[in-house]
Design a protein around this nucleic acid. Structure first.
Lengths: 233, 233
DNA sequence: CGAAAATGTCACGAAACCGTCACTTTTTCG
DNA sequence: CGAAAAAGTGACGGTTTCGTGACATTTTCG
């Protein structure tokens, strides 16, 4: 998951309270205390969701929502409004302006996290769901399962993602840093040699089916999934 | 499409106006002019969506919404509230009570139909009433009964819905949050780990028939109902 | 009303998984 | 040939994830 959430809130105590809760729930948090900073951050690092307080100095929360909905780039950006209890009218205006949801202060942290998750879930399209087949291997992303000649191959989460990526981009070499970016994630810092270890684990899992040769080492460059050169061993 | 829509509205002129428009749009319309009749109709012929006027004699619209959301059988039922213009507070209360959307009177017929379609679309693709059979299990939604090799399996309501959903979408992984959305319902906020516990209860119920292996854990991803891999233990 | 059933949450322990390291083997190249 | 570089291998500690039993609360129903 590890979604980026931008929190726009001028009361610092509340801002931090929210941030702590979100980070505990596994989100990465960006902070802004007024609309201008928020807009700049959105421009720089397009977050996955923005949590906006209704009361902001300068450009108000609802105006920020309207503005984000108007612009092409941010039109589909999930937005949640924070409103004070009792300001009922505002909430409806917020929803009409294009917010995806709203949360009233004071809020329960659990509800906040639940609503964020719900909104994110609703937005996410299904991608990379096609079944991949090559060299006697069959990888089904929806079922999270790999079959070798009809037999189930036991893979850990990381090995599965690694094989998924390699099979989605076969017959070409991927450097260790590329693999770290695409399989582990951009912002994750791990040693490059970690890739070696997971390649080894993946090979070990394929070995019983005689398919370890599908994952090939290209010395000085990286790894490759290839059916063509697999036989030559 | 041909969805069943129950309209709850005490002003007969408006009720008929709505009914005509909906029928023209291809919906099948049920009518009720107060909450008690509505509840009876919902009990008899579980409609696909209920359109509820805020102002009703006796049990008010919003109380009806709350009640429907509380009860097991109707928790996931799509609800739209009809409110008079200007009654902003009501709308928000309605949404908080669990309505999926609201429409202000006077409304444009086109908007009404559009919102109904939108809410229905957002809903789960209805898990039908058809009998599901897989891996020696037989689930009959109409009878709300599960048979394992001909013998009745004792399941609680939640376990039944969980198994129903899993069997309706077999051979693919469902994350805990997906399951919460589609088995518990969008409006419910419960911990993700709750899913684990119910999976455990479901497995315990299937265990005596040696069918616990049908429900599989996919580490880091969720759960899966699968006949294919069930044997390999 | 009161017993029974169902539900959601928590705490604890076991198992799986991950990243890193030290060491070995293989390859490259002066 | 022999040293250096690159990749393979096995092991280990720490963390995450999941299964399990227990418990309090709510709901159902006689």
């Amino acid at each position: 998951m590890a979604a980026n959430v931008l929190v726009v809130e001028d009361e610092l105590a509340i801002l931090e309270l929210i941030a702590v809760n979100l980070e505990q729930a596994g989100f990465h948090v960006l902070r802004a205390s007024e609309a201008e900073t928020a807009l700049r951050l959105i421009g720089e690092a397009l977050p996955d969701l923005v949590l906006i307080d209704w009361m902001l100095p300068g450009l108000s929360g609802i105006e920020l929502v309207r503005r984000l909905r108007r612009e092409e780039r941010t039109r589909a950006l999930p937005l949640i409004l924070l409103t004070a209890r009792g300001a009922e009218v505002d909430k409806v205006l917020g929803l009409e302006a294009g917010a995806d949801d709203y949360v009233t202060k004071p809020f329960s942290p659990r509800e906040l996290v639940a609503r964020i998750r719900a909104v994110l879930r609703r937005r996410r399209p299904e991608v990379g769901e096609e079944v991949l087949e090559a060299g006697g291997l069959r990888l089904d992303p929806a079922a999270r399962r790999v079959l070798a000649e009809g037999r189930v191959v036991a893979l850990g989460p990381t090995e599965f993602r690694l094989l998924h990526f390699l099979m989605a981009h076969p017959e070409r070499v991927h450097s260790r840093s590329q693999l770290l970016d695409r399989v582990w994630g951009d912002h994750v810092f791990v040693e490059e040699r970690t890739v070696d270890v997971h390649v080894r684990r993946l090979r070990a899992a394929l070995e019983p089916y005689g398919m370890a040769a599908l994952i090939q080492t290209v010395r000085g460059a990286g790894y490759r999934f290839s059916v063509q050169t697999a036989q030559e061993a």
